[in-house]
Amino acid sequence: MTDTTNDRTLPAYQLPHHPLRDLLTGSVASIAFTFIAVVAIGLLWVGPKFLSFGNVSIMGTFLIVPLIVGAFAGFALLAGVVDLSIGSIVGISAAVFAYLISHGWGVPGAAIVTLVMCLGIGGLNALAIVRFGADPIAATLGMLTALRGITWVLAGNQRMISAFDIDWFNLINMQVLGLPLFFLIAIGLTLLAALIVTKTRIGRHVQAVGGDDKAAGRAGIPVGRVRTAALMLSAFGGGLGGLVYVGQLGSAAGATGFGLEFQVYAALMIGGYSILRGGVGNPIGGALGLLVVAGVANILDLKAISPYYVNIIIGLLLLAAVLLDRLRGGDSYE
């Protein structure tokens, strides 16, 4: 019943705790400093407009879905099971939700059915990975492909399902204090996820399972159940993302959510998560990663710099995050 992670020998260069050192080496330190740097560059280069309510509102609206999806997908990453199907879960959620609405269903009923379906998809992922021991990348890649195909079929010849519900549209696009309500909700969900991860027994169990599942099992943590719950949460987040997309766009398309998994995981990795080893990362870091990427893209947009440079900069940020992680000692600071 010993936690073997405590048996690690500290590297010779590792120094005792110190508040300022902790600030510089904490799990979200790198991304927090990067975020401050991006805000500073934005203010210097773009001017006060960068932090104006209007501009933050535009970025916030765009970030609602990635933030929600990231907050929930982070649980799967922490539990050591990467879920590559999140983008296609967003797609099928949007398609099913839009399909039901376009066939006369009310928003609450359609939303419940859609979310239950997404939980089922997460359950299927868990069945393959936890019960049958499938490799998470292979299993969720298969799910990604299958769901994308179903979404295309649902979207029909027009490859689009119109589902404009004025009440849902107004709710999703509602502004509170000059910012999108659902952006604030997404931030709230992120903080709640961070609280669960860092302050609760459940969160510690998730991290333990991701860090070393054998040790966690020996410590009496139900590894299978934790991973099943994490995968179902991840799928639930994708489901919520799909509902929001339909509210924002008034429709769902065959391509909805296409590539979202890369956008979200790139940001989560910039924010301190790892897709290859569990137990590492913090939802606040992930959210800051998304904000950094969106901030950089926004600066380039507002400075009318060719959009073709955005991906280069995001790629370099990702490389810098990985290098910084190694320079800080990788897992050793966890």
């Binding site: 535009i58 879905v65 766009l249 398309a253 391509a255 060719s306 959009p307």
Partner: peptide, 15 residues
């Protein structure tokens, strides 16, 4: 003149 790329993504296009 100002140019932005939709990245072939409906959400980016709206933003």
């Amino acid at each position: 003149y100002v140019e932005l790329s939709n990245n072939n993504d409906p959400a980016v296009a709206l933003k």
